[in-house]
Design a protein around this nucleic acid. Structure first.
Lengths: 193, 193
DNA sequence: ACCATTTCTTAACTTAAGTGAACGTTTTTG
DNA sequence: CAAAAACGTTCACTTAAGTTAAGAAATGGT
């Protein structure tokens, strides 16, 4: 499990043994059961998450129903908006499957940043890279139809379609569950020919 | 013009006079005319942009027509995806209005980061903050209809509706120019009562 | 193994966005 | 200044998503 983490980090900066130890001494690993809610709307929290195994999602409750807006799987990081703004959260975070997480918080980070400036650079690069990736995602979303978005997801993250319930996928694609059902029927109708 | 920049930075970290001088000696200010193309699809570039005054946009050309996906106005930064990936750009960047830009590149940044570690922290915080803001934007986009998105824009960035042509706004809202026209007519019809 | 709940699909109907075309208006530019 | 190009609106028609409701299938808990 630790190797997964260090292999990932080594893509960005090289760590000494001392630095690896520092991470392990500070990092808090959590095993979380499917369905567990990590953060609720209205709550304040300082926890950031890094997914080592499994899948978590963010969702809103609007007019009584859930709108899932993002999924985070292996080697993806989520710093909730409320950690940045120090305001109550606008959304929920919960576990789609049994998940192993690394949980961080700003105090712990500040300490590490002081001792090992390299980590500031690591976080800067990660954040910049995520930002660019996120922008491309958003661009693709804006410039394509629900059907194209679904086909695109099928290509790029087929794992999600396996492990995530349809109604959660639907709002992720920006449509209603019934529309996703219909859209899938339409596609498999086309593929019959 | 410099004051604008330093006022902005001072929200995140405090700079000594020496550090301010370092920025000014490295920073390259550019005045750019409306319509100028800063980056074309297929080109490689290492330039990042920080908008001091005016407005720039990113757009794709898909099936022969422009799809505008983002606008950057005063005190907003854009690091093009191709700077991160070192691959040819997928999109164009051009000036919506006459604009004053601060242009940076990784070499220059690396030098500054060495001399003043404080700038690494500044960039980390900015990137993390932008990432969180961007996520909320994306969430709002996914969970609302074109009409809601337009009304939302009217509230949050009324300046854009003033200075940006309708057909650019339309793709930014994820719809066709004709649909935006109709949608606006629908809204003003409602407001007559 | 059974019941309750949640999830997924289907269908009929409504609403809004996409499409193609026409037309008036504004802006550009030679 | 005049012609051309770009832009915005409107309209009729097509296509796909939203809505409401019902029932089938899968899942979970005891």
């Amino acid at each position: 499990m630790h190797d997964l983490l260090f292999d990932f980090i080594s893509k960005y900066v090289s760590l000494t043994e001392e630095e690896k130890k520092a991470i392990l001494s500070l990092a808090i690993f959590h095993s979380v059961k499917k369905g567990t809610i990590l953060l609720k709307e209205g709550e304040k929290s300082n926890d950031g998450y890094f997914v080592l195994k499994g899948c978590i999602r963010t969702y809103y409750i609007i007019d009584g129903d859930e709108k899932t807006t993002a999924f985070y799987t292996e080697m993806e990081a989520l710093t909730p908006h409320c950690v940045i703004t120090q305001a109550p959260s606008e959304y929920y975070i919960s576990c789609v499957n049994d998940t192993i997480l690394l949980v961080s918080n700003p105090d712990m980070e500040a300490e590490t940043f002081d001792k090992f400036p390299k980590f500031v650079t690591l976080c800067r690069i990660l954040a910049e890279e995520l930002l660019a990736k996120q922008q491309i995602n958003f661009d693709e979303f804006k410039t394509s139809s629900p059907e194209q978005r679904y086909l695109n997801l099928l290509q790029k993250r087929p794992d999600l379609i396996q492990r995530v319930p349809q109604h959660q996928l639907a709002s992720y694609l920006g449509i209603k569950p019934q529309s996703l059902s219909r859209l899938r029927a339409r596609i498999s109708e086309k593929n019959k020919d």
